[in-house]
Design a protein around this nucleic acid. Structure first.
Lengths: 199, 199, 199, 199
DNA sequence: AATGAATGAGCATTCATTCAT
DNA sequence: TATGAATGAATGCTCATTCAT
């Protein structure tokens, strides 16, 4: 019986190794050693190195989607939902640096690495944002002139770039709350000084 | 001068090849063939494969900075400057897909690829945004509560994610102008409906 | 007995798999699947992969020897005995392509594959030919100038090459009878035109 | 300039190594070491391991054909031509044991090893025999009832089996001349005692 | 006896880099 | 300067064999 245990143990080890070395510099033997199994055992659970990477995406992002959806299900106000999304995303990326690196770096190459791999889980995740924005538009809270398809990318891109710097520099110039608040302030209110009478 | 010619010819060829295949799948012989020189000739101009990648970054982003700075030098209104930056960035990324891919994908890995490589040119480029925001704050146009260091990442991240989708999907669901306008509307005015009396 | 059953079931499966893929490309798991047993079960009956191959030889050629000897036992005329041998050999090789391939191809490598393996059963089989020839010489039917040791190889080599082409090409340009008759005509009468007055 | 020298040096080394270990047990590094080149150098001259084997066949059998054709070109009597063929074949196989083994063993597997490889050179070589037989039939020397297509296989098979035993046993029970004479006697005159009045 | 998950040694092939010309 | 043939270290993956159950 191939155990589900071992499967996810390998996934977790692979996430760690991919994060540390990057997909191309990661060796199957590194992952095997990290997971404390033999090299060959990896191939009882995965077809090849690419398959491991895809599985990492699917499983880790799948978990993330599940968690976020659960948090959002209790909420109705899109402003708070957006806050929840931002807080959850940034906190997970801050806590799980390995996952953060894999998403920020390896996921980006995945299309080039793996022919015909359409990253559906990832799309699903980002689409949570546009769903929230559409909801806000229906409720009259968000401007109807905003295109959810563009805004979702802008919002995700902003979060992604913030968290990317955390993984790269290892320094935390700004706290999690500060970053979340700033992003929400920008997206909700813009950066223009509302009262200022400009020249 | 002959030498400088060949140097930049190799850089251009490398940009093309890295964009098409990614750094790891790019072969020195691919670059050499593209540049119409012998494999060994590459090593008269660069120390190794990593060195070529770094040079691609430095040269291509250096050009970009130069162009953007030139456009901005005639302008004083930070709102228009931000528009110029967004328009220039997106139009270059749309026109020069090779450069776009290299910046979006390979640049991200560079820290992992190359020990001790701090991407100064790239920081310099993104810092143009925070400089504009600070200028706006000094002029009382932008809120003082906005942290330029966070806002620059949010703004760049938004642009980057928009242009990333262009390179990945090869489809242009939204036009350049539309994307630029939406990004500016979001960053300047936010996404909240200002007049709506919310429950 | 259960055990013997499974033993020969594995032998038969191995013959099939070796014929189809060749010894080196045959996988233990292929043989196990064909025999409908677990991989590990194979090792309860055989020491290793080579041992399976040797057993295939011994068992299959053993059967062949038994059958041929039985057919020959009723006969006394060496000319008819040679005909029986040729007919039997070619018909078995034609019917049982798996066995044919294993004998023609894998058996040839066996000496190189398996140190110290002397293929006694095979020698025994080919020696049937020389025994018939000696008998013919004793009876004055065959020339005494013919060396049985050489003639047996010539006769077997001729049959082997004929049947080899059947397995390789899958076409039957010549029928079984035609081939048998020609071989016997050549060996018995030679290819010279007896009456022709040559220049 | 990739030298033709190195190409044939690798061919010769490969012949040696394939003969000694067999195709599957031969390592690329064995061939490289034998040829005194680096492993990678092999791949400047050949596409893969199979390609080396095919090249060995083509080159070595090509040489053989050339030599045999040259010897035969001066001759018109098919009986002598057949003798020349037999003598040449057996003497080459006796002298060049490596080539002999490769032809007798590896060539046999080639169809199974290499998809779509039709061994044209080998066919060409064996067809020399049928050409001689047809010539003899036209001259009225050989029986018209003999099918050259079958006789060529019988003749080649006989020679092949004789020489195979030389390579396997390393003993020379029969001399080259004796073997040649016996084969020719069998094929020309058959093995029947012509004068004997049989019961 | 039977199973099949786990093992880990083993190898073809690639490709960045060198260096004789 | 320029070439490109030669190098050889490095690694994903396979599969015969083992052994706990």
């Amino acid at each position: 019986m191939k155990s589900a245990d071992k499967h996810s143990k390998i996934i977790r080890s692979a996430t760690k190794v991919f994060a540390k070395k990057g997909f191309f510099n990661a060796r199957i033997s590194d992952i095997a050693k990290e997971a404390k199994v033999a090299d060959g055992t990896i191939y009882l659970y995965f077809n090849n190195k690419f398959d491991i990477l895809i599985s990492v995406f699917e499983e880790e992002i799948g978990n993330l989607i599940e968690q976020v959806q659960k948090l959002l299900s209790a909420e109705e106000d899109p402003r708070i939902m957006l806050e929840i999304f931002a807080t959850k995303h940034l906190s997970v990326m801050k806590k799980n640096k390995n996952l953060a690196e894999v998403i920020q770096i390896e996921l980006r190459q995945s299309a080039k690495l793996i022919k015909d791999y359409r990253n559906n889980k990832f799309s699903e995740y980002v689409n949570i944002i546009s769903t929230i924005i559409k909801l806000g538009q229906e409720q009259g809270i968000y401007r109807s002139s905003i295109k959810p398809g563009i805004a979702k990318r802008a919002f995700f891109g902003a979060l992604d770039e913030i968290s990317r710097v955390w993984t790269v520099t290892n320094t935390t110039k700004y706290s999690l709350e500060e970053a979340t608040n700033q992003i929400l302030e920008i997206f909700h209110c813009g950066i223009l000084e509302p009262d200022a009478s400009l020249q």
